[in-house]
Design a binder for these strands. Sequence first.
DNA 1: AGCAATTATGTAAGCGCTTGCATTTTACAT
DNA 2: ATGTAAAATGCAAGCGCTTACATAATTGCT
Lengths: 339, 339
Amino acid sequence: MAKLRSAPTLDDVAKMAGVSTATVSRCLNNPDRVVEATRQRVQTAVDALGYTPNFAARVMAARRSFTIGAIIPTMENAIFARGLQAFQEELHQRGYTLLVSSSAYKPEIEEEQIRTLIARGADGLLLIGHDRDPKIYDYLNQRKIPVLSAWSYAPEAPVPSVGFDNRAAMFELARHVIQLGHKRIGVISGIVEGNDRARMRVEGIRDAVNRLGADALALIETPYEIENGASAFRDLMQRERPPTAILCGNDVLAVGALRQAQEMGLDVPGDVSITGFDDIELARIVSPALTTVHVPHREMGRKAAQQLIDMVENQTAAEGEQLATHIVNRPSLGKPALT
Amino acid sequence: MAKLRSAPTLDDVAKMAGVSTATVSRCLNNPDRVVEATRQRVQTAVDALGYTPNFAARVMAARRSFTIGAIIPTMENAIFARGLQAFQEELHQRGYTLLVSSSAYKPEIEEEQIRTLIARGADGLLLIGHDRDPKIYDYLNQRKIPVLSAWSYAPEAPVPSVGFDNRAAMFELARHVIQLGHKRIGVISGIVEGNDRARMRVEGIRDAVNRLGADALALIETPYEIENGASAFRDLMQRERPPTAILCGNDVLAVGALRQAQEMGLDVPGDVSITGFDDIELARIVSPALTTVHVPHREMGRKAAQQLIDMVENQTAAEGEQLATHIVNRPSLGKPALT
DNA sequence: AGCAATTATGTAAGCGCTTGCATTTTACAT
DNA sequence: ATGTAAAATGCAAGCGCTTACATAATTGCT
């Protein structure tokens, strides 16, 4: 904090208004516990001095920070950016401030960030997904910090969650694809380790394939980059009996696949169908536009904020909430060619 | 009196290690001012207790927060998300935490956020662009808070900036377009009010048109949404003598225009050329890919963090830095048809 | 060994605010 | 008026940490 002799304190206000600091504090925090006349007098002093309460002092004394911490893999990923934006808006409306960190998908960094945010007095924490060292949950639990997980709904997880069922959502999509007649399914998944969202999506496809009987399932796991989607696609299509449909774990990978298909002179969906997941802007912009699973990111961010604040304010565990997703049919998915 | 479950304090550590709190504090903050043996002993106690310093207390006592506040229009905009991500990474590396707020492009909200972040003890502030009420600069100045502006370099502005010359960059692009032979230029700009980046880009085009003599310049101003780019494009192309090239203030608007062109059965760049600005991912993904101006967002974020931290730590005004941009030539721009 | 100069550690005074409890004021009924 | 309950306000003890300044331990020289 920039040190400046000029920053007025509660004391200054109290002196100017001719009351005690306790009264000033009450005017600011519990206006109804103070008689109107004094409140006015205090307000005048506050305005005259341009007083703004010192946050750190308030946190120390009240042992509350009105700050919520969020740790997301990266803000560069549109799905997090959007959800986080909604989360922040809701927080702001409820008088909280957002402290953000990103973990770059690295568990060690996430752990460090968790400690940092708690040390900073975050009243609650938003985390993404459920896959993490149980020790972290112990720590969180011992510290009694309200924690909510988003982007993945898992009722049996150690912390309540607001999100959707990645497995079921992907299952639906895979079923839809298989019922269109596709027998040879390719999968381009994001990295699964430490990422239950990615893992569950793959599981969903597996379920569908096993249940509905497709012939083959080729899987490639690769980091979240358009280029990686492209090379995975190339790899998949060069195999002996290339898939007729490729389900991608997210839209970014799918867009990479799509471009690579064009590069290779393949028609989508004539020669091969491609699907994504998330329904980010990119998915409707590419041509052919991408069949994908729509996820209500903004709603998720908003609800997560509401539930987390409830946890913080009422000291109760949140219910969590499962959000619905739906398949968005676009031209990148069609029937398999009649070979 | 011992409150169970509550986080261990410096006192606990001191007691356990058999030293004074001052020594513990020094071990943590100035390890070299303490002899190795005690440092070890203290460290052991810290580990055993799982001690994490209380941030608010530290801020209060040290009158520093190691927190930097950033206020951006919205995280949903990829250009801010990317730069902010880099900013945060650099901050983290230097031991600072990022406090983020978004203003939704509304000046009142930005002002409120500025006050909030300062009350929260931010050691420094990152703001976007330069257009804002002079009173805000007065306030900032009076509070002596280091402030840096990014996304726009303007040496004469009230606060130092790390960014690029929006006007010159757009001038270059416009010149390039005009030299390709385009005479009728259309412009789809983002909202200019309170946004010097957008305003300067339009100025850059004006400069080029005036200097190099194009026949006409039609301008539409519209909010940052793909759909708005589309409708602006439709509007522009329905005019009496439609432009042969449309320069858009950003890639998002340009992508909207591009899609609308396809919708209308127009060939790009055969019938009309379209250019963007920012070089976000979208620009290379659409087809035809977009000619645009590349902005080094990550570098900008990183440099902004460095300069801001320098300001904070050395109490000096930063130099600011002008970053280079360059035109990225892609197929959406071509010569005008020979009519 | 003896002394000054260094270096390591301890003491204690806050940092600005909230809040339980004590005290004063007000409101109301008698 | 007077007494009493309720409302308003004041008092003062922290919240956990940093940091002058004071004090104790060590080191280096002669």
